[in-house]
Design a protein around this nucleic acid. Structure first.
Length: 939
RNA sequence: GCCCGGAUGGUGGAAUGGUAGACACGAGGGACUUAAAAUCCCUUGACCAUCAGGUCGUGCAGGUUCAAGUCCUGUUCCGGGCACCA
């Protein structure tokens, strides 16, 4: 009987759905296992063959864990708020809610088509009010929290207020934005408004005027990780730095925990490194320089306090508060001109130029050790947002300071003798101190230690750990996101909504265009005007919405108890499911989602809402399946298309690359052989009538017109999108799943290439064929399996089990192929062998497995079968082939019975004539057994 | 510039320090067929060969080891991330 994948697949997909085979509950005695995919943003383009790679791998793992007796949580949902839907609305007038719902529907159809074992009853959508109610709830909890450094956790803001009332600002060690000192009496003297302003300095969600990444084209502010090379990640629009009143998330409070947590989780090393770099911890000193003729002191940050004797100038960031106060009248014009230039330049221009620039303020600082006058400059290579926004210039030991000193003719005093370290770079922390007073002759690390001590003794500074990580901007001047559950009073003080007022639903609007630095919500004045919480007068709602990462920062918790109306998830559900055991998704979220959600999790841990410090135990980044971009070479002057191998005959600048639709290409995906046949050329001319009159030149004697191919993104605009639905229609979902795994390791990126799929397709037919007899149809035997048959089966069980455990899905497919081929040779149709093989293959090809499982006589789903265990004894062969090598070189093979003792093997090996020859009469020093088989004789 | 990865046949890729190239594609040859498709069988890293086998071979140069694709040092190229972070 023919293997008809589509028939089988549709039948079982429907049955699984109707029988709710994949729904799970936390009321279970089984151990839990949580397998999570990064949920997709449902774009209008639908899925292409690259998207399901990670989903297939996680589906296999989920099914495997279920067969191993785990209660497996494997949910799916949609990250449904965000910019693209809103841009689409602006361009086409379709409400984001409508287009998002359409896209989700299409995604679900495409996913179901592949036979995934998601528990769809747990689906979440971040744009659903029942979901974002809890996103708003977490926001408010953060708003009403501060970070206690002493306890190293977030705590309710009410406790901070009590501390201020009793002891002022000095009684607590709280994370805050800027230093403030006040006594309890001063706190009590403050107006309500002043107190609220003070509290903003401590809240974990807080408002501040900050320099933010403003994108004019998108009409919104962006987070640091949403800005790439000075342009917006989405759309590539220019981004400028602008001061705006914005919500911020105090992620910096968690910097140290985010860093340390990385040592406890199983993430790819590269990803951990990316997060470490993003957090950017450095140890150094914050220290003060007195300013000449000024009461203000200049506070700088340095990781090299040992080099202070080489400090010959100071540099402030152009935006530094002190600039205005210290600039001298004769330098005012120069400084203002420089400030004007820095302001007018966009972030992008500044990054591209990298030219040394700056201006002298006319002011001088006093060197704390030498008492010398040190000139104070401003320059944009010093950043306002890092450290104190001021540095000491040490041109002998820092490349940027050196360039600056050369440009402005400032003295360069050598302070580290690196002659003992010829390979050391300028900024390496090695060498011997010179021209450095009491530090002279010390090695750099000792000098750093000595100087830190001296600075603290003298009271001119202190040790300080500094992070590159900044607080995340949390406001977006957009429509399609979570509204802030906040109302402002006349004084602009933020009041939080009561929990009973949540969710604050996103109101409908008809005009989605942003304008005047405000989002579309500002136009709904009827919605904006609202009584203050508690009814004390009228107020105004926040017209911004939350950023895309808000909803995705905690979605994995909602899956645990997705319909709970009274909590983000019940504590029983969270206690049972705990955390994510296996998380799979793209590496592009390394410093965005993965950092934010880790922080939210730690925050929730601080309040005992979740039991674990880290949300994800193990993370795998799946690679991308790329497309191949095919183009035909056009020789413009002669209006002739030229086959790629003839390109050398034409001047390169007269050739243009014209994109060709992948559907017309023969051998698509093969970088060397992709070509158009006569039929393909006809299709191309029909598709591009503007080229219908052009001639196509192929090499003499060839009817193939070769294309120029390169690996690139799979995208509509490159005409190279391969839809998984089409592959499934032709080969079946089981074949598609196995083939994507067979292409290579899940972590690896590779171009899509359909050519190899025939191998997997053929394998599935052969596998199916094991169960059928040409004449009698379905036929399995109840006879006892032979030793050979069992050996094939148990080898396969062992290898597949080992390989799934180490997430090596591609080699699993090979093991299935080997087992199937061998059983075919043995003409094995024994039930005892085949039914175990079905279970092995079920995670990879669930439909064919289900069908055969039923046919073989089971009346329950294969999903509830038990993973077979293997018998080690059966793996041993009756005869063992002993390769014998002398000094590591293979010399001979000898066959011995498996039961032979090692001594017998040695004796036999050494007696072997070829080995005798290589021993050259010498006595062996030692004999080494390898894997209990191979013998190496060392002479 | 800095930090991570990676480099294995014509191709995708296998190899807990232990017979490199599993498995698959492609290619070549053969069987079946009027023919094609499908299917099946054989060959397929390079070189030498008296056809028994031998020599070389995992980007390059060294090292450790009885034994290195795998570990160490240096180097080249490719991919990814960060980039005035004091």
């Amino acid at each position: 009987m023919e293997y008809a994948p589509r028939e089988i697949e549709q039948k079982w997909q429907q049955w699984w759905r109707e029988q709710r085979v994949y729904e799970v509950t936390h009321q279970s005695d089984k151990p839990k296992y949580y397998v999570l995919d990064m949920f997709p943003y449902p774009s209008g383009a639908g899925l292409h063959v690259g998207h399901p790679l990670g989903y297939i791998a996680s589906d296999i793992l989920s099914r495997y864990k279920r067969l191993r007796g785990f209660n497996v949580l494997h949910p799916m949902g949609f990250d449904a708020f965000g910019l693209p839907a809103e841009q689409y609305a602006i361009e086409n007038g379709i409400h984001p809610a409508v287009s998002t719902a359409d896209n989700i529907k299409r995604y679900k159809q495409q996913l179901d088509n592949l036979g995934f074992c998601y528990d769809w009853s747990r689906e979440v959508q971040t744009c659903d009010p029942a979901y974002y109610r809890w996103t708003q709830w977490i926001f408010l909890r953060m708003f009403n929290s501060w970070y206690d450094r002493q306890a190293d956790r977030a705590r309710p803001i009410a406790e901070l207020i009590r501390a201020f009332e009793t002891g002022g600002s000095q009684t607590v060690d709280a994370v805050h934005s800027h230093d403030e000192h006040f006594t309890a009496a001063e706190w009590l003297d403050m107006s309500g408004e002043q107190r609220q302003e003070t509290l903003m300095n401590y809240r974990l969600m807080y408002r501040k005027v900050g320099y933010v990444n403003w994108c004019e084209a998108l009409g919104t502010v962006l987070a640091n990780d949403e800005v790439v090379n000075g342009v917006s990640e989405r759309g590539g629009h220019p981004v400028e730095i602008r001061p705006m009143l914005q919500w911020s998330m105090r992620i910096t409070a968690y910097a140290e925990r985010l860093l340390h947590g990385l040592d406890t989780v199983d993430f790819p090393e590269a990803l951990k490194q990316m997060q470490r770099n993003w957090i950017g911890r450095s140890e150094g000193a914050q220290l003060f320089f007195e300013l000449e003729r000024h009461a203000d002191r200049l506070e700088i940050y340095t990781t090299r306090p040992d080099t202070i004797f080489g400090a010959t100038f100071m540099v402030l960031a152009p935006e530094h508060d002190l600039v205005e106060r210290i600039v001298t009248p004769d330098q005012r014009a120069t400084v203002e001109a420089y400030l004007a230039i820095t302001k007018s330049r966009t972030e992008r221009e500044r990054q591209i130029e990298k030219a040394v620039s700056g201006a002298f303020t006319g002011a001088h600082a006093v060197h704390p050790f030498t008492g010398k006058r040190v000139p104070v400059y401003i320059a944009d290579y010093v950043l306002k947002g890092y450290g104190t926004g001021a540095i000491m210039g040490v041109p002998a030991d820092d490349e940027r300071d050196q360039r600056f000193a050369e440009k402005f003719n400032l003295p360069i005093v050598p302070i580290v003798d690196k002659s003992m370290y010829p390979d050391a770079g300028m900024e390496d922390k090695v060498g011997t101190m010179i021209h450095s007073d009491f530090l002279n002759d010390m090695e750099v690390p000792d000098a750093i230690r000595a100087m830190l001590e001296r600075i603290e003794q003298m009271g001119i500074g202190h040790r300080k750990v500094q992070y590159k990580l900044r607080d995340a901007n949390y406001s977006r001047q957009r429509y399609w996101g979570e509204p802030f559950p906040i109302v402002y009073d006349q004084q602009g003080v933020a009041h939080d909504l009561q929990e009973s007022e949540l969710p604050l639903e996103l109101p409908n609007v008809s005009d989605f265009k942003p304008g005047g630095g405000k989002g579309p919500l500002a136009k709904r004045t009827d919605w904006v005007q609202t009584p203050l919480p508690g009814g004390a007068g009228s107020g105004q709602r926040d017209t911004d919405t939350m950023p895309g990462f808000a909803g995705s920062s905690w979605y994995f918790l909602r899956y645990m108890d997705p319909r709970n109306p009274t909590a983000l998830a019940s504590s029983e559900a969270i206690q049972y499911w705990q955390d994510v055991d296996f998380y799979i998704g793209g590496a592009e979220h390394a410093v965005g989602h993965l950092l934010y959600s880790r922080m939210w999790h730690k925050f929730l841990k601080d309040y005992g809402i979740v039991p674990t410090e880290e949300p994800y135990r193990k993370l795998v980044n799946q690679g991308m399946i790329q497309g191949v971009v095919e183009s035909a070479l056009l020789h413009i002057p002669t209006r002739t298309f030229v086959s790629a191998e003839l390109a050398d005959e034409y001047p390169a600048d007269e050739l243009a690359e014209i994109l060709v639709h992948a559907e017309m290409v023969s051998d698509y995906g093969d970088l060397k052989n992709a070509h158009l046949t006569a039929e393909g050329i006809a299709q191309f001319k029909h598709w591009r009538p503007d080229y219908a009159g052009h001639t196509f030149r192929t090499a003499a004697g060839s009817d193939r017109f070769f294309l120029r191919s390169e690996v690139g993104k799979m995208s509509k605009s490159k005409y190279n999108v391969v839809n998984p639905d089409d592959v499934v229609a032709q080969y079946g979902a089981d074949c598609f799943r196995m083939y994507e795994m067979f292409l290579g390791p899940v972590e690896m990126s590779k171009p899509w290439d359909t050519k190899g799929i025939s191998g997997v397709s053929g394998f599935l037919r052969k596998f199916w064929g094991l169960f059928f007899d040409e004449k009698t149809g379905f036929s399995v035997s109840d006879a006892e399996p032979t030793r050979d048959e069992l050996r094939v089966l148990h080898t396969c069980i062992k290898k597949v089990t080992d390989d799934i455990e180490r997430f090596s899905m591609n080699t699993c497919v090979s093991h299935f192929m080997i087992a199937t081929n061998e059983l075919r040779k043995l003409q094995c149709n024994k039930r005892a062998v085949l039914q175990q093989l079905i279970v092995l293959i079920a995670p990879f090809a669930p439909h064919i497995a289900e069908e055969l499982w039923r046919r073989i006589g089971h009346n329950t789903t294969v999903c509830d079968a038990q993973w077979p265990s293997f018998n080690e004894a059966l793996l041993k062969e009756d005869q063992i082939n002993y390769p014998v090598s002398v000094n590591g070189k293979l010399r001979a093979n000898l066959e011995l019975p498996a039961e032979t003792e090692q001594e017998a093997a040695i004796a036999a090996a050494l007696a072997l004539a070829p080995v005798q020859k290589w021993l050259e009469g010498k006595a062996p020093k030692k004999v080494i057994f390898v894997k209990g088989r191979m013998i190496n004789v060392v002479v």
